[in-house]
Design a protein around this nucleic acid. Structure first.
Length: 641
RNA sequence: CGCGGGGUGGAGCAGCUGGCAGCUCGUUGGGCUCAUAACCCAAAGGUCACGAGGUUCGAAUCCCGUCCCCGCAACCA
């Protein structure tokens, strides 16, 4: 009989910078699910990889003085290293620069074009010639290119489009008729309402981006991310290649795992592409939440991602894996902070698990020279309860893993660890030194629990689980061993006294980690402190800055951030709109003296003409923010220079 | 009326296909000595945002209204 298959994927991470703890969360999560399903005897295929095309990668490479491919090659080495470090054991690592992937993408593109699902049209927007970039109205700064500050002009670019609009209803219908398709109810609602807003056809090629897969029949275009990155899930299996055996075996995917910000692409665009190709859709898409710090998403763009390399090196892989699988954002968002991380490790892994092994192994060594005695026939109620709970644990974990809930599965396992610690209190083995049979039974049952727990943990924290099995001198690692029958026949293994983890000095470690993150943010600051280019005195002279007195202030309707001021500047009074509603109450501003740039070209904001700009002082991300006032009261209309 | 998520003991969360309010940490008191100052027990602590609102024999859980937080969108000279 053929084995049941299980195909699980992570997203292919974008190769434009280092990975952070959030990426680790997805990958470790996927790894645990893959390992678990292997233990269930399934034929598992676990795919991960990297997305290496696009403008951003090309730019990064240029800055580093490398070709895009060289740049990716270097960066991807770090990715490999991270997954190796975290014991993420994938079956295939796909890179979008792989030749066979490129070939598949081109075939897909052609196929969709030939059948009319991709068509040539034009993309209209505002174009900056030197930067070779299109911008939308709202991206412009001062009506000019946000990158270089130069004029943009309306331009049309020839581009290929995918008929997404044609598939919206079908995708929606599919979502509604397949309750397991999207794990998270909230995500499901969001996606449906997104579809209901109406879908536009999707631009799937660029002529302005050179670093990408060339459109096979029109090579001045490159394939844009949708048709390049998303099909990795099937190109990795050899779809449309000379050998489709893997594709036939593993597709459709059982689980696509990802963080929620890319849910939309996987739930709407990807299924539409698959439908166009006439392929079955993945069974489950699970878009998990984010690790957050004080409510903010943790990521490289914010410069506050905690360094997974540091955490692994100092506390061990399994500490990180355990934390991510237990406290990570398996469903909604989850807060991360160093203290919670350290406490979780100390409490669960050290105090509960490692200590259980320590005390059990110590007693076995002291009283039986480590050799596990046979179970007697005198089973007491406490014994039976403990064994039953352990066997039940296996069933619970199986159910929870079926639902992809590693956090609850781990809770179920550690519940048994606690029960075992309690069992020791209840049976007080140290009082049974004279009664070898009873003492033997107690330790035997504890041994069984430890063994069962270790087996159950193999998917989650494999290194630790393996160490426990070694300490127990036991090589059986099948889930079937978590049973009464197995317990009954256990005996003879020679346990060694083992300390799995050292207790962490939390205060000391917090300091260590803080120092580390301070170091990191300082580096980031330095990188960011690029000053603007020098200007001449003449340039400066062009500015007219005056002291103004705020006469009235009110909130602008339908805009969260805007306040509308009337500002007295000597004889004249002007209307100025400013984006500070998040920082100041309107009433508070009335009567204040502020500095105003008075010769800035007027601009309409939300229908109101703003005739100048009020100056503010602020730090990165507006963490500190204030307006600038003269040191003492001075007549409004006074010049600043 | 833009879209969406959320408001549960000091902290972080679960419960939300309705039936005595639960978990981890923290706090207080006690126990044990096999174990890594670990482990075990007990206690305190919540009118489950608000509405003397609706449905129901019964609501944290379903419906309605209000307030507040957080994302996205809009907007930021």
């Amino acid at each position: 009989m053929e084995k049941e298959k299980f195909y699980i994927t992570t997203p292919i991470y974008y190769a434009s910078g280092d990975l952070h703890l959030g990426h680790c969360c997805t990958s470790v999560y996927a790894d645990a699910l893959a390992r678990w399903n292997k233990m269930l005897g399934k034929d598992v295929f676990f795919l991960t990889g990297s997305d290496e095309h696009g403008q951003k990668v090309a730019e990064k490479a240029e800055k580093a003085g490398l070709s895009p491919k060289q740049y990716c090659d270097e960066l991807v080495k770090k990715f490999y290293k991270l997954w190796e470090m975290l014991n993420v054991k994938y079956d295939k690592y796909i890179r979008t620069t792989d030749e066979d992937h490129v070939a598949t993408v081109q075939k897909i593109f052609k196929k969709l074009y030939d059948q009319g699902d991709i068509y040539l049209s034009s993309y209209e927007g505002l174009y900056c010639t030197p930067c070779e970039s299109f911008w939308t109205e709202s991206q412009l700064v001062d009506g000019k290119c946000p990158d270089c500050g130069r004029e943009v002009k309306k331009a049309k670019e020839e581009a290929y489009f995918f008929r997404l609009s044609k598939y919206g209803d079908k995708v929606k219908e599919y979502i509604l008729s397949h309750p397991d398709f999207i794990k998270m109810e909230s995500t499901k609602n969001e996606m449906i309402s997104f579809i209901d807003q109406g879908l536009n056809d999707l631009c799937v090629s660029r002529t302005s981006v050179k670093w990408g897969v060339p459109v096979p029949f029109d090579t001045k275009h490159t394939v844009y991310v949708w048709i390049d990155a998303l099909p990795n899930y099937i190109s990795a299996l050899g779809y449309l290649s000379s050998d489709e055996s893997k594709f036939k075996k593993y597709w459709p995917a059982d689980v696509h795992l990802m963080a929620k910000e890319i849910a939309r692409f996987h739930i709407i665009i990807w299924p539409a592409i698959l439908m166009a190709l006439g392929l079955p859709l993945p069974k489950t898409i699970h878009a998990h939440g984010w690790l957050t710090q004080s409510g903010v998403k943790m990521g490289k763009s914010l410069g506050n991602g905690f360094n997974p390399y540091v955490l692994c090196e100092r506390y061990g892989v399994d500490a990180v894996r355990y934390f991510l699988l237990k406290n990570g954002p398996i469903l909604g968002d989850a807060p991360y902070d160093n203290e919670t991380f350290l406490k979780t490790i100390n409490t669960d892994l050290v105090n509960d698990l490692a200590n259980l092994l320590s005390r059990t192994s110590a007693m076995l060594v002291q009283n039986f020279d480590g050799v596990l005695p046979k179970l007697s026939a005198n089973v007491q109620e406490v014994d039976a309860n403990l064994v039953n709970e352990t066997v039940e644990m296996k069933e619970n974990v199986e159910k929870l893993m079926q639902k992809l809930e590693t956090n609850n599965a781990l809770s179920a396992i550690f519940k048994v660890v606690r029960l075992a610690n309690k069992y020791i209190e209840d049976t007080a083995p140290w009082k049974e030194k004279e009664n070898k049979e009873r003492l033997g039974d107690i330790l035997h049952n504890l041994y069984f629990v430890l063994h069962s727990v270790a087996v159950a943990l193999l998917a989650f924290i494999p290194e630790t689980a393996q160490k426990i099995l070694e300490a127990l001198d036991n090589k059986d690692c099948l889930l079937e061993t978590i049973s009464k029958e197995y317990n009954n026949k256990l005996c003879g293994n020679k346990t060694q006294k083992t300390a799995l983890y050292q207790r962490l000095d939390i205060e000391k470690e917090i300091k260590y980690l803080e120092v580390d993150s301070v170091r990191e943010t300082e580096q980031k600051k330095e990188e960011k402190s690029n000053h603007k280019p020098d200007i001449t005195f003449d340039d400066f002279e062009k500015l007219e800055i005056m002291v103004g007195k705020i006469l009235t202030a009110e909130k602008v309707e339908n805009a969260d951030k805007l306040l509308k001021f009337s500002v007295k500047l000597g004889k004249e009074t002007r209307t100025i709109v400013s984006g500070v509603a998040m920082h100041y109450e309107a009433e508070y501003m009335v009567g204040k003296e502020v500095l105003v740039v008075t010769n800035l070209a007027p601009r309409k904001i939300r229908g109101i003409e703003s005739q100048g700009m009020i100056l503010y002082a602020y730090t990165d991300g507006d963490k500190e923010f204030c307006f600038v006032s003269p040191e003492k009261e001075i007549s409004d209309g006074a010049f600043v220079g």
